[in-house]
Design a protein around this nucleic acid. Structure first.
Lengths: 233, 233
DNA sequence: ACAAAAGTGTTACACTTACACCCATGT
DNA sequence: ACATGGGTGTAAGTGTAACACTTTTGT
């Protein structure tokens, strides 16, 4: 089998876009940027970066996440590549797409909005330039599948969270309602939550405070190393 | 957000490799090629093709499958892209990898072996050039996950097959044994198998013939359209 | 009749689902 | 005392897993 490259084959550029998900407490949000400079100036796009000749895509995306969030250790997964010809007027560009999950704090939110980014509910994302709509649709599907099978949601929540908060997160992520008692039984049975002993009042009107839990990362590592295949919901 | 490409960014070449799985009746096999021409002449590689400037990767892979198997309508799925720098001495090459499932017949097997390809049990694949070992490992993982959740295995079997054959396939694909009675109950309950009324003797020594079934593709379409999420094994 | 593989049922247990009230706390 | 959301249990049904013998057919 022959695979020989001609010099004229080396004429493609690489970029990465990343679909960043966050959770407001009520809604699943995603981060949208606005493009500066032609082509498509002013258009909505996903946060994106060019991959320079000597860079690895994952590192470029981590660098981008660091610029956006001051951290690059968020859960990050490669999606498909979007490589059909004629996506970009300046030449052939292959987009190696990723999605990331971040813990949305108030500072992070206002910080990014000050820089011209927008956190938009996934149900309301506007149409974007290039093929970023396809990337977004693909990321949402992938995220949904992951949520169903793995405890990925916990980085989206504050480090300490209530059972009601996880339930709302799962309901947003999967687009359906769960029975409170059954939901609690199930997450507690997984043994991946630790009671912190703390509690908060969920709103001014709420009288009784809710118990706070945290995710037991160590236990999860142990279980996954044993090849235990957790299935949720 | 700025993403502006310089002319010097358009210096990457694209290739696709495809991990092709087939089933011999006893073992899961995968197709390995041998490289002609430098670099790496004589090395084992995955069947691969260069993506020319105006081609879509999926079409290139379909073309490659047509050359290999005379058909391009096999189940085909994109895997991750392998894009780290310095993979290839002739310049930066991004490999958009795929995996495909084919129905292995005797002609197809001998035909490909005559062309210098080898069908090798997945448990015995040799080390390959470039980063094709990584691609292979990734493909095996993806295939395993798919087998668990979706009835993908049926294209690997002859159009008519026995329950013992599916069971062997699942046992190979997932690397574990199943109880015959439980296995049968489960696949029959899915309602995706049609009894053909035919039967075969599985070997000369076998006296009683086995019943033959086929996959009910129409029913499967209907179920997936309804969003029914099948979970197997 | 015998050898060989095909085919079949039951039981115990775990998980899932549906369902409605009491509890703790702040005002 | 009352309003608010937090928190809890049970029963019926469904799916899973473990287990060994009978049936059909060719020789």
């Amino acid at each position: 089998m022959k695979i020989d490259f001609l010099p004229s084959d080396f004429n493609v550029a690489l970029a990465s876009s990343v679909v960043v998900f966050g959770f407001s407490g009520d809604e699943l949000l995603t981060l949208i940027a606005t493009k500066n400079g032609e082509p498509f100036s002013g258009a909505r796009i996903l946060p994106s970066a060019i991959i320079k000749p000597d860079q690895a895509p994952e590192n470029v995306v981590k660098q981008l996440l660091r610029e956006l969030t001051q951290r690059d250790d968020w859960p990050l997964e490669q999606l498909n590549s979007f490589a059909n010809p004629y996506r970009n007027p300046s030449g052939r560009v292959v987009n190696i797409a990723y999605y990331a999950l971040v813990r949305l704090t108030d500072e992070l939110k206002s910080d990014l909005e000050a820089k011209g980014f927008k956190w938009i509910p996934v149900s309301k994302v506007p149409s974007m330039a290039y093929d970023h709509d396809d990337v977004m649709a693909y990321a949402r599907e992938r995220f949904k599948r992951r949520v169903k099978r793995r405890p990925v949601g916990f980085t989206l929540l504050p480090r300490e969270f209530t059972l009601n908060e996880i339930q709302r997160l799962y309901e947003c992520a999967l687009g359906k309602k769960f029975d409170k008692r059954n939901f609690r039984r199930k997450v507690l049975k997984s043994q991946l939550l630790l009671e912190t002993g703390n509690s908060v009042r969920s709103s001014a009107r709420a009288k009784r405070p809710s118990r706070l839990y945290m995710f037991d990362e160590k236990k999860y590592q142990t279980l996954t190393l044993k090849g235990y295949d957790i299935v949720y919901f």
